[in-house]
Amino acid sequence: MAFLKNRPAQNASRSQPESSSKRWLREHKEVASSSWHRLWQTPLANLLTWLTLAIALALPAALLLLLSQAQHLGQQVNQSSHISIFLAPYVNQEQGQLITNQLASRPDIAQATYISAKQALINFKASSGLEDILASLTDNPLPATILIEPANTSLGPEAIAILAQQLRQQDQIDQVLVDMAWLDRLQALLATSERFTYSLALLLALGVLLVVGNTVRLQIENRKQEILVIKLVGGTDAYLRRPFLYAGFWAGLFAAIIAWVILQLGVTYLHPPLLSLAQSYQSDWQLEGLSWFGSFILVIASCGLSVLGASLTVGRQLRLIEPK
């Protein structure tokens, strides 16, 4: 049976083109390889194109990277938000200690630290350097304070606001301070940066499309004679389009690789000063380079945009070249 099956196939391959899927695969392999070899015929011109594309990619990618890590940091800041409670002046140290213990036993509070009015004054003297002025005061102007750390570190700003509201209702408590405004400002700043980054990414993606489109247009112009002859001997549009789409793909791949290197260099360069900045805030935050997933997205976006740019141009340009 195998013998019988083999013979017609052999005959077919001798006289006719092979099966369509096999042919499709082989043709794509051929075009991928021939367009790859063509790249190295004009390496400098290609390198310049790749660099242009890489910069257009690296810029939004760097901003997105910083943004995602800043958002991460923002969440950390949220989690470590303290609540300061100022006790009423008539509450003495004993009562203050009692309130602190009561608060500490609440399930939604992890830690409550009592700072007496006297201790607060000592702290303030040490940190402000206003000892002389403070010494001239007859009364201690500072109230006793309880510092509270909420229990659930994943508690959002709303939950903290509710906790603060509950605390305010207690008689002996004069004032409850949560630095919500600062957190709100940080959130707004991050949201603004996010939109800015997305707009910039959109514009630069458009830039990538235009650069690739223009490069392909020039390549088509350079190969006009070849395209004319191929059209005359019956080359289809798909056949003519293919090498230019592959050229776009290679450009996208090399641009992604260069953009990746630019990003890693940038991260390495920025890392030391950012690290000391983070350490000054007692944060263990570190600027990280692109993850595997991020690198994958960069390559996909770059190749996708380049092939799209090439295909948008190539159809229109090929129609302009007709044998006369």
Partner: peptide, 26 residues
């Protein structure tokens, strides 16, 4: 003649076959 000067003689002649999807051997 409309030959492509950056192709070899062989590749010029093979062009219509390449377009028609013939494999290298045929």
């Amino acid at each position: 003649h409309q030959l492509l000067l950056d192709y070899s003689v062989f590749d010029n002649v093979a062009l219509p076959l390449k377009i028609s999807g013939y494999n290298e051997r045929d």
